[in-house]
Design a protein around this nucleic acid. Structure first.
Lengths: 332, 332
DNA sequence: AAGCATTTTGCAACCGGTTGCAAAAATGAT
DNA sequence: ATCATTTTTGCAACCGGTTGCAAAATGCTT
């Protein structure tokens, strides 16, 4: 079907090596030869087979992009940034959607079968062990949005979720709330656990402030709404640190429907600062997660690892900051 | 680095063909042989190189998934469905993000270099010519969410946007509005053009109803909000058919901020029925686009084409339907 | 136990490229 | 024009698999 190197060589009346060399940069070819080959290639509509060459070069320029977050709008931004960033460096994202049913082992195997040069795990909910499976298989891996650790086993790029929890608590404290709560995402997500830890660690410094907590079933609108409806039905706190922005928006919807006002009756602070958070009809106060930087840095790290596979694992942590909008009452 | 077929063969004390055969189903291998090989493979941690085998079989099981919609939340649902659907059939999505800057030619070339078995173009804004470029390059292609044509040049799966425009117009007419408008997405998107055509064709049957139209710059919240603010500043219509749901939500935000009520002062009907449309704080009346069916059907069509490359191009069009929620006043 | 049909196995060529090495060609110095 | 040096080119082996074909092994019949 497709035109091969051999055909071009025959047409140009040169050896196959010569053709190969004109298409690999850095190889030694005379101008005359190059012109001859390029002419023949053009006439035949030849373009080299990247997969065949990967056999000898050992490089496919394929990068596995693994995620299980196909329901959180922020990940559309993440995929956008990743695909563009990788493309710009001549790398190709092979997308893997890790659902609850898919066997993690199977995806490791599959990505190895396709000889990906590296793997980016983009998820804030997967345990560190998942990314480690790739490392153990000898595949360079970066865990983006992964759990921060002072002794990382694999490269991690993300934020310090414990610190974010602390920051949220401090923000609420500064607003003078006397009863506040943590409404987390799924309890088994590492990001939920860490944010919870940080939040609580700060609150223990303020025993006078009443603190409660609960967890939603998922990082989703429905889960946030459902949980907030339940909380309102009991006796709600004055302000909530919600697991993330989608959850916050679900909570806001519940509050609105219960004829309570934001921020007067209940205050909300989210986390992520996704595009939607600044939509005027949402106007969510939230903690900004610098996803652009995280993605860029992840890609840089990946590129660095391709050249230096045994690079010592490092954690790259980016600072977050509170974005003041309309869902928290002003400081007294 | 990785374990190869040859090593397994040596360890098991058999020929390379034998190893190859145990890993290709349908090949003739005795049980004894299979056990021997599998044992050796297990001990060595061998898994076959999919790319190397593609060289001889001519199949990579790689499917290019090309899109330029990385800002519309509905496409996260689309990517979710596509990746899962493809995975379930043993196919791997190679994601291509087509930005304004990327040369379409280049992506065609790139996907050919990676010998993808087929390409899915998932976009409602790309011209049919783009998908055709793949067909001309001899690559099976399906254009999902593409423009409906009675004489399609490539396989198209989607909706009849003209019909949707008509349906929107009819819905507004039935509500007894006397001044209504079309607020489209970007004017050069085929979906915008078709919805406009349909909308207008219906309105010409009702010369008594005042009809106006305008276009937003993109299918985005900001564009919708901006355009609606502009319209409100002039003299707004009683009801709008907005290009899609995100645009509608932007419009809703503008209306709210202008202290006008929905649906009393201004009615809105969107298109897509994305997840967010049913969020209680949005509650958008919209035209449901059956994306699940479109994606499923696209994948089925792709699989069919892999077995029968010269399949005659067909258009698969799925019916849409109005989903009544809270942004249009009830019929009189 | 021999004869035949059937299944299993290995050989070797091939898929579409790359690359080390040595021969050939071009360049430069004298 | 000669020779040493550098650059360019082709040969041939290899990357990790698959597959048609013929030989070897097995199963079945009588």
């Amino acid at each position: 079907m497709a035109v091969t190197l051999k055909e071009v060589a025959e047409r140009a009346g040169v050896s196959r090596s010569a053709v190969s060399r004109t298409f690999t940069d850095g190889a030694s070819v005379s101008d005359k030869m190059r012109r001859k080959v390029e002419k023949a290639a053009r006439e035949l509509g030849y373009s080299p087979n990247a997969l065949a060459s990967s056999l000898t070069t050992g490089r496919t320029k394929l990068i596995g992009l693994v995620s299980n977050n196909f329901h959180n709008p922020i990940f559309l931004e993440v995929f956008d940034l990743f695909t563009r960033g990788l493309q710009d460096r001549g790398l190709r994202p092979l997308l893997v959607n890790l659902t609850d049913e898919t066997d993690p082992e199977a995806s490791v195997r599959m990505l190895r079968q396709y000889s990906v040069d590296g793997v980016v795990v983009a998820s804030s909910t997967l345990p560190p062990g998942f990314a480690k499976a790739f490392r153990d298989a000898g595949v360079p891996v970066v865990h983006s949005f992964g759990r921060y650790s002072s002794a990382p086993q694999v490269h991690v790029v993300g934020i310090d979720n414990v610190e974010c929890g602390r920051m949220a608590a401090q923000t609420l404290i500064a607003r003078g709330y006397t009863h506040m709560a943590f409404m987390g995402g799924p309890e088994d997500a590492t990001s939920t656990q860490d944010r919870f830890t940080g939040f609580m660690s700060e609150m223990t410094k303020h025993p006078d402030i009443q603190t409660t907590y609960s967890f939603a079933e998922a990082y989703s609108f429905d889960a946030g709404r459902k949980e907030m409806l339940r909380l309102i039905d009991a006796s709600p706190a004055q302000a909530y640190f919600c697991g993330d922005d989608v959850l916050s928006i679900g909570a806001l919807s519940a509050i609105e429907d219960s004829n309570l006002r934001v921020p007067e009756d209940i205050g909300i602070i989210g986390l992520n600062d996704m595009e939607m958070a600044r939509w005027e009809n949402i106007d969510l106060t939230t903690i900004h997660q610098p996803i652009r930087q995280i993605v860029t840095s992840s890609i840089e790290l990946m590129v660095a690892m391709l050249n230096e596979p045994d690079r010592y694992p490092e954690a790259r942590i980016f600072p977050c900051s509170v974005v003041e909008r309309g869902t928290l009452r002003p400081a007294p």
